[in-house]
């Protein structure tokens, strides 16, 4: 019994002490490798940051989207002016970009749901699913874009 208590006590002591033991020399000797031209973000990391960026972009354009919905419903005149606005190629191009952000966010989100359900368990699947997310969002954007154009 005493042995067990002693053992548990020792384990805790080691765990706590390790923080002190390890931290001090590691902060001195840890190699710093910040050659930014050599460090490459892996594909899942690219999808991750694009998921964030697209989400933020969609949040920032929310007032614009709400204004468009309001104009599309308010009256026949506002609807017509909205249609006229989208005759402009620049307006269409920016909407296409926003559509891509939405589709990318959607596809990447579905990938995270798959990860939550332990469907993607190894590095190979993580990389391939990231590639699939990028390709699927781009192809869907092309498909919807061609239909709308």
């Amino acid at each position: 019994m005493i042995m067990i208590i002693l053992f548990v006590f020792l384990c805790h002591a080691v765990t706590f002490c390790q923080i002190e033991f390890v931290k001090v020399p590691m902060q001195k000797k840890r190699p710093i490798h910040l050659a930014l031209y050599q460090i490459k973000l892996p594909l899942p990391g690219v999808v991750s940051i694009l998921h964030r960026a697209s989400g933020l972009l969609l949040f920032l354009t929310l007032p614009l989207l709400l204004l468009m919905l309001e104009n599309s419903l308010h009256s026949a005149q506002t609807y017509a002016s909205l249609v006229a606005l989208f005759k402009h190629p620049l307006a269409r191009l920016s909407m296409l970009g926003l559509l891509w952000a939405l589709l990318l966010h959607l596809c990447a989100g579905l990938r995270y749901l798959a990860i939550d359900m332990h469907l993607l368990n190894n590095l190979k699947q993580a990389r391939e699913s990231s590639k699939a997310v990028l390709m699927a969002s781009f192809l869907l954007m092309l498909l919807i874009g061609v239909r709308l154009w």
């Binding site: 964030r52 989400g55 933020l56 969609l58 949040f59 929310l62």
Partner: peptide, 12 residues
């Protein structure tokens, strides 16, 4: 959408 956006922007 708004609740989702809140959590996302908060995390960022």
């Amino acid at each position: 959408l708004y609740y989702h956006a809140w959590i996302g922007v908060r995390d960022i």
